[in-house]
Design a binder for these strands. Structure first.
Lengths: 349, 349
DNA sequence: GGTGTATACTAACACGTGTCAGTAACACGT
DNA sequence: ACGTGTTACTGACACGTGTTAGTATACACC
């Protein structure tokens, strides 16, 4: 590999100083360079195929123009993987739009929870997006207190750290309203995860509020707790089917869990939606290919990624918005598992 | 934000020179530091919560300890997104294992094809993994000729650039042998994409070779061309069903396309596998949840990612392997769409 | 003819680290 | 007493860039 050209080489070739080269190539405003000189510099840079060295630039500017997406893997691995392409795409596109690069850093369960801290402390990046379950990390709070730019994907009760999430409660209410509108009165629920997870809790709250709104009493007996995976859904549905007075519809707060629920129903010879209607949550890629295709609450993965990156970059650049808690709306995607009339527009959803 | 401590601060606190701090913290071999001094330095660094500045380190070492994954988006977007989580996970874990970071850079269709070049020329990274369709990029060949570390995901006929891919031909043969073993003699094929795509061509070759092996004449009339998406699969299957003498089984060289084929069959009231057996290729997440669950050729996304990163890092570090064309084996995943007896072991696959 | 101002550039410093060449102190063998 | 080697450290340079303060020239103004 021949030595890369530096700005010094460009300066020499153009017959100017290194400073002038920098001024020209960075288009520094309010500084006068004669058109001929400017042209000579640009030509020299082109001829030498000059690209400024990123490391040197970072060092002197103190900015890396890089943000990192920290992807904590936990018990919900496969579940969250379903969102990775969309989320990452959103983060990357927003980053690129604002002139930033994206570092992707998954943290495996066997790594210390705060393995990502060196990214911040070593100034590998200007800011971080943290996604996935975390213990109430002291390192996180420290960094936030020191003013290091952070955005969470998902919520962190307690501290007021900027975050991006979906409006889980309203999403659940949409699902419920759909079932209620179809005439269901006895509606069960299977949560996506244990209630310790904020999202889980919020979706349950949405379920309760929607019932309340419709004047239906909440029954503890109709609620089961899923745990991210298919198998937990199967078991939960089994348990609901064992009830003396079965529900006619079930809101499953996670598509992955709904897949298991669907299997349990099939194993019992029950038809969906005729014998039991089902609404999921998340709208993962699989849902539209199930038989019957699953009606579900769409989570805008791309939008979450974009919003997180955009918010983070604004913070990095000191343009701090007055509202740092972003909540995106969900959207109900009507397919076949509820028996609602499918319009042409929905067909492709 | 208070000023971050530098190695100078550590040196001052420990009462030694900056050089000594560097020697201690980097554990430089063959240099003698007294245990007490070493201890003092470590203690000072801990006390100040010192992390060396990544940019400065990069500048002086000339290494970024970063590799980039360039993700070209093209006509096969949704198809390739199915592999992103696994591939990226593989790349990231291998990178982390060798002490590298991962930069993720998608290139949108509306960007210039060689938008990634600045990553290399500006020394943002030590090496690149390029994934997705590319025009025969002159920039690519230039960089490779200059010795910049590159690894391709997928193949690039012509130049001998290190690459990682799946053995498409053998994968297709596995699929065919399975169908042949089940007694099928008249077997159609729907390709994953136009033959201009290397993978597409290779899978077709595998199909031909397996037939040949079994003493069955290849019939052009039994081949249709898919184009990444569901709809192309539907059309291709429609066309096969219009044949006077229908095949009893079809090898669809892409699960995504197979989904469409399945739909066409269902629309014609045909049962799978009784009236028509189906084998896919890729083993995307959706395949196991289809009805019937799709028998398919598993592509090891994680392994491809890991191998690509490992190969790249070896090249970056000058430890160039004598074989730079890595081909990973596929594995047939038997599910329901072929009517093969399902063993307990397969059940969960 | 002096003062002021705009133009077109440059010299020199700073960013924070890794590392090479060098030095002082001391032990050891002859 | 002298050279040799070892231990334990340090001073100074280099990496390639952005930027500030400054200089030289030309020109206008009264």
């Amino acid at each position: 590999m021949p030595d890369r050209p530096t700005s010094r080489d460009v300066a020499r070739l153009a017959g100017v100083s290194r400073t002038t080269v920098s001024l020209v190539l960075n288009n520094v405003p309010d500084v006068h360079i004669s058109p001929e000189t400017r042209q000579r510099v640009l030509e020299a840079a082109r001829q030498l195929n000059y690209y400024p060295d990123a490391s040197a630039r970072r060092l002197v500017s103190g900015k890396t123009r890089t943000i990192a997406l920290v992807w904590h893997r936990g018990p919900d691995q496969t579940y969250r993987d379903a969102f990775l392409p969309g989320l990452l795409q959103g983060v990357s596109r927003a980053a690129h739009h604002y002139g930033y690069y994206v570092l992707f850093r998954p943290i495996e369960p066997d790594e210390p929870d705060d393995a990502w801290v060196e990214l911040a402390r070593g100034r590998h990046t200007d800011g971080l997006i943290l996604s996935g379950p975390r213990s109430d990390d002291i390192a996180l709070l420290d960094l936030h207190r020191e003013g290091f730019p952070l955005v969470l994907h998902g919520q962190f009760p307690g501290a007021d750290i900027p975050s991006v999430d979906v409006d889980n409660e309203r999403g659940a209410m949409t699902a419920l309203r759909h079932l209620l509108a179809l005439g269901h009165r006895r509606i069960g629920m299977i949560t996506n995860a244990p209630l310790a997870y904020t999202a889980s809790h919020q979706r349950l709250t949405g379920y309760r509020r929607a019932l309340e709104e419709a004047g239906i009493a909440f029954e503890e007996a109709l609620v089961r707790y899923g745990n991210f995976d298919e198998e937990s859904g199967r078991r939960a549905m089994e348990s609901l089917l064992a009830l003396e007075e079965r529900p006619t519809a079930v809101f499953v707060a996670s598509d992955m869990v709904a897949v298991g629920a669907l299997r349990a129903l099939r194993e019992h010879g029950l038809r969906v939606p005729e014998d039991m209607a089902l609404v999921g949550f998340d709208d993962i890629a699989v849902s539209r290919y199930l038989t019957p295709a699953l009606t579900t609450v769409h989570v805008p993965a791309f939008g979450l990624g974009w919003s997180a990156a955009e918010l983070l970059i604004r913070i990095v650049e000191g343009d701090i918005p007055n509202e740092t808690q972003v909540r995106l709306e969900t959207e109900l995607v009507v397919r076949e598992s509820c028996g609602a009339r499918i319009t042409d527009a929905d067909q492709r959803g």
